[in-house]
Amino acid sequence: MPASLCVVSDSAPTAAPVRHSVNEVDCRVKAHEWVNGQYRLLTLSAPCSVLDCQPGQFFHLLCPQTDRFHPYLRRPMSIYSCNREKGELTFLYKVAGEGTGALAGLETGDVLNIVGPLGQGFEIRPEWRRPLLIARGVGLATLAPLAQECARLRLPLTAICSARAPDLLMSTNLFRSFGAEVITVTDTEGNSDTESLTPLIEGLIRSRGIDAFFTCGSARLMRMLQEIGARHGIGGQVALEQHMACGIGMCQACVRPFRREDGAVNLRVCREGPVFDLQEVL
C-alpha cells in the first residue's frame, strides 16, 4: 500500500451497531417528474421497513443500466420526503452524470433497488428555538424534511433559498407550506454572494433572534456561516457530501477531516454524517 500522505487519522467503528436497521429493498416508481430543466422528483412506493427515517438521512440508490449509462457503484441521495401512511419515499435530484442520467430514465412502474435509511440526520437541540435554514442547489432537497420537522415542533422558521437563476429555485412553496418565512437569492440577481448574504443574515439574527444555522449544498455558504456563527456564538449543523462506495461505513472511502477535542480526525460522511456540527468541519 502506498505511504500515507495525510496527517489525519481515520475513524473506525465506534458504538456497537443496532441490528438490522438498514434494509435493501426493491421499490416501484410511483411518479417521476421534471421540477425544472435540471431537477427531477422521484416518488417511490416503499415498504415500512425503510420508512423509519430522520431528516438529513439518505438512501443509496442502485441506478439502472441503460443503453447510454452504465453506473456501477450506488449513488447517495437525501430523503426529500418520507410518508409512512402513504408508504411513500421521495428524492429530489439533479441530473448530473452517469448515475443520475440513468436514474432519469426510470418510468412509473419500474423497479429501483435502494439501501437505507443511512447515516445520522439533523438534531434540533432543545435550546435551538429560532432556526435559520440556508440551502443552495441540491441542498434544498436535504433541508426540506428538516423544515417539516421544525413545523412539527412549532418552531418559527426562516429559510434562505439560493440558486444560480430564479427558474432553478425549488421547494420555496414547500418551505412556505411548512410555515417558513422564505427569502430567495440568485446569482443572476446578484444577491447570493457572501458579501450580500452576511449583512442579510446578521440582520436576521438581530430582528428574528436566530439561534441556530442549518445548511447544505455549498462549501462557500458553510464557511460564511462558520464565521458568522463564531462571531455571534451561534451553533448549527451542516449536511456534507463525499464520494462513497459502500454507504454503510465499511470501506472508509467517504472520510473528511473534522476538529475534535483531541485534534483533527477523519470521520465517515456516510456513517458519522452526513450531518455534522457546523464548527467541527475543517
Binding site: S4, C6, S9, H70, E98
Partner: peptide, 30 residues
C-alpha cells in the same frame, strides 16, 4: 495508528471500481 490516503479514494470504471483507501488503522490496541 495510521492515516489513509487523500480523497477521492474510490471511483468507478466500466464494470469495476478503483480504490486507494490505503490502510487507515486505529492500531493494534484499539
Amino acid at each position: 495508528k495510521r492515516a489513509g490516503n487523500p480523497v477521492p479514494r474510490v471511483c468507478e470504471v466500466n464494470g469495476a471500481m478503483l480504490n486507494s483507501i490505503g490502510i487507515p488503522s486505529k492500531g493494534a490496541e484499539w
